[in-house]
Write a protein that binds this DNA or RNA. Sequence first.
DNA 1: CATCTGT
DNA 2: CAGATG
Length: 330
Amino acid sequence: MGKRKAPSRENTPNSDFCEFLTELAEYEKNVSRNIHKYNAYRKAASVLSSHPTRITSGQEAKKLNGIGEKIAKKIDEFLQTGKLQKLDNIHNDSKTTAINLLTQVTGIGPAKAQTLVSEGITSLEDLEKHKDKLNHHQLIGLKYYHDFQQKIPRNEIKQIENLIRGHLEPQIHLTICGSYRRGKQQSGDIDALITHPNYTSSQPKKKQNLLKNVVTALQNCGLITEIISLGDTKFMGACKLDKNSITRRLDIRLTPFDQYFCAVLYFTGSDMFNKQMRAHALDAGFTLNEYTLRPVGSTGVPGEPLEIHSERDIFDCIGFPYKEPQDRNQ
DNA sequence: CATCTGT
DNA sequence: CAGATG
């Protein structure tokens, strides 16, 4: 059914350049293991993406911060031929395509994909033949490759949310974040945040078993079907609404009560929105992260975390007009 | 940054 | 323990 590449439509005068630069960046990161070239390409894409006018030559591009000889040359080539030789080669390179495929299996990153390919393992079928080369996480990734590839309809998440809530002690707060909270009709996975009034950053030991208890309860009711990893504060695994449902990726994190709203805000995103909001906080003299909102003294050092009792508090404190999750999409 | 894994 | 992964 559904395939790969997300049709993310950009729209800036230089978006076509950004597109090939980010593709080059990914190639450098995943195939060559060159993090410097990777960074070089992405900063170039980044300056270009915010440049207000169309770049019409490599020479002009070169004036921008982060664009040097080599990228300028590629811009010229692209301007003249409408494509990039290097990119064509990459597309036709079987090693590259194999790595890109393997990397889609959760638990397999660029490093593991490299070694698999070097051992001649380049397809899902190959992986099936060599399960002995995979760890627990990767085995789950392989087993549910097709399921995990599927988007999750909002309504299904809603049902899962209710089911989870039904198995939590009343004291436990639950928020499903991510694109679901932003109102999207589909999501890639389910990102749940929970907290409990007795579990705070000052008494982190207190509800030490809370997460594990929740996970076993959800296992017993049949919702959680696989555990990828489980620690004191973070669970990663899979769940299935009922007998004939598709298996879905589910993450649950336990956050201290006093940091819950910063976490909810952060994990709701979007990434773009978070960046804007953090920037605004900085201008207003605060530093905002996934845990706390703190005033920044003119000395430059952050003070004590402000007490936050809602997401709104955070907006109010930094004088940022409140946005409903639905309009935090960019 | 939390968790897992292999050395 | 370092390195990989999400």
